[in-house]
Design a protein around this nucleic acid. Structure first.
Length: 462
RNA sequence: GCCAGGAUGGCCGAACGGUAAGGCGCACGCCUGGAAAGCGUGUUCCCAUACGGGAUUCUGGGUUCAAAUCCCAGUCCUGGCGCCA
């Protein structure tokens, strides 16, 4: 949500943000018009109420003095004022509610340095890492979805049987690789980047989804609703499966006032994430790349307003460090104004290199980019929605903090990159060194034998 | 799940139909050689350029000229009982 004073004083900036982000459901003119009328009514209502307060006070005095006749007269007057007041306040309340609803649709204003652009084609590559000394790769790299099924590390078809398409079983060393990545990331952020661990609740209320900006409108179709269908109306405390730990963790201190010495607050959260990804099917999404349930380590920061730009840089570095330690080549891109999300002020994405499948937008040497992290500065946009404030000095009034977050990082695509980039000629997978302590010292993943009669059909008969 | 009690400012805590005491913390000032103590002022939100005004006792309704206070519903917390990985 934007500061209403910004809407009043800099409508052109807001209009520009609406246009560049293409938020066509936001109606700025209607907001401005309603706000002007609301302020008129507010002044009128305050004045009527003042008159009524004066009369009410006099009634008390008259009653105490025993002057019943005068008191009756005053009570009558008070009644007249009340009906006038009711009419004015009803209109004002109605307007206020309509303004609030509209305000929730306004996008955040992009950072001045964010590249101006229309869509992802205008995103700007900031830098690449790891391409100078690439490890020796097999002639023909097997895509992770084939390799993982063959090695019995991921079971897509049985996942679909049990939970539907987009859900999968991780098995044996596949599951262990996922656990190892998880523990490695948590430990890196906690021990070296100063993060505090959080394990959040998985269901979140509609109000939490609104606090971070997923609701209303922007994410409803992609959310997993608990009880009820997505296209049906929802209440504030209806529950949804979290699409990212950003939602529960950012809303954790909703409606609270933090102390100056609490900041900056750095939380690292692990959670599964649930997304419907409606209609996303095809070669781009095959395998463990775009699924309905996936694990992610999320970094959430609360900072003082003047520190968010600097912290944003630090946040990108912290996410990058995960890929560097894993030895996975990647690039950082800055998202242009037209491609960034509604609540975003500035956004950098980390894309890891998955060398098996050549995709049109991939790097020159083949393979493709997979987004594994999105590092974002939301300024006070989420803080206003969720009511996240801090008190700069004990005696001063509270101010909205700035929120930032970054994936640190999404696990499935890291698994994909490892399966493809660390693939060997003999079809085994070398485990990145930093993960070995979390896998009992194991260095290589060789796969497992299939289970059941389907194994016979797969050509493994004796 | 049942029964009982509770929710008041950053924190603690009074008032129980007549318009929100007091304390702590914090800030500023006075005092002091300096500090402590003491004293004074301030310390929520909204409208208004300002003077000033309005709102605010968990949330939403209701009764009343008037609600922190009475009534109804909800949320959360605490205690007891029950149930239970």
């Amino acid at each position: 949500m934007l500061d209403r004073n910004v809407v009043r004083e800099k409508p052109d900036r807001v209009r520009w943000a609406i246009e560049t982000k293409g938020v066509d459901i936001a109606d700025l003119d209607a907001i401005i018009e309603m706000d002007e009328r609301w302020r008129e009514l507010k002044a009128e209502g305050d004045d009527l109420r003042r008159q009524r307060n004066e009369i009410s006070e006099r009634i008390g005095e008259l009653k105490r003095a025993g002057d019943e006749a005068e008191a009756e007269e005053a009570i009558k007057q008070s009644g007249t004022l009340k009906s006038q007041l009711d009419a004015v306040e009803e209109e004002a309340d109605d307007l206020e509610e309509r303004i609030r609803k509209q305000e929730l649709l306004l996008p955040n204003i992009p950072h001045d340095d964010a590249p101006d652009g229309e869509d992802e084609a205008d995103n700007v590559e900031v830098h690449r890492w790891g391409f100078d000394q690439i490890r020796e790769l097999p002639e023909e790299i097997i895509p992770h979805y084939d390799l993982a099924e063959e090695m019995e590390l991921i079971d897509f078809s049985r996942g679909a049987k049990v939970a539907g398409g987009g859900f999968q079983f991780l098995k044996g060393d596949g599951a262990r690789l996922e656990y190892a990545l998880l523990m490695f990331m948590l430990e890196l952020h906690r021990e070296e980047h100063g993060y505090h661990d959080i394990f959040p609740p998985i269901p979140v209320k509609s109000t939490a989804m609104q606090g971070t900006g997923q609701f209303p409108k922007f994410f409803v179709d992609d959310a997993f609703r608990i009880g009820g269908k997505n296209d049906e109306p929802y209440d504030d405390d209806d529950l949804w499966l979290l699409p990212t730990a950003e939602v529960p963790v950012t809303n954790m201190y909703a409606g609270e006032i933090l102390l100056d010495e609490d900041l900056p607050l750095k939380h690292v959260a692990f959670s599964p994430n649930f997304r419907r990804e409606a209609g996303e099917h095809g070669t781009q999404t095959r395998g463990y790349v775009r699924v309905h349930q996936f694990n992610k380590v999320e970094l959430v920061n609360f900072v003082r307003p003047d520190e968010s730009d600097k912290r944003h840089e630090g946040l990108v570095r912290e996410a990058e460090e995960v890929l560097r330690r894993l030895g996975l080549p990647y690039r950082v891109i800055e998202i242009c104004t037209g491609d960034m999300g509604t609540p975003h002020h500035r956004q950098f994405d980390l894309e890891v290199w998955a060398p098996a499948d050549d995709m049109p937008d991939g790097p020159e040497r083949g393979g493709r980019w997979l987004e594994v992290s999105s590092a974002s500065n939301f300024t006070d946009f989420q803080a206003r929605r969720a009511g996240l404030r801090y008190r700069p000095e004990r005696h001063e009034s509270a101010e909205y903090i700035h929120t930032l977050n970054a994936s640190g990082i999404a696990l499935p695509r890291a698994v994909v990159a490892i399966m493809e980039y660390y693939q060997n000629d003999d079809g085994t997978i070398t485990i990145p060194e930093v993960l070995r302590p979390y896998m009992n010292g194991q260095e290589i993943i060789e796969g497992h034998d299939p289970v059941g009669e389907s194994a016979v059909g797969a050509g493994r008969r004796d």
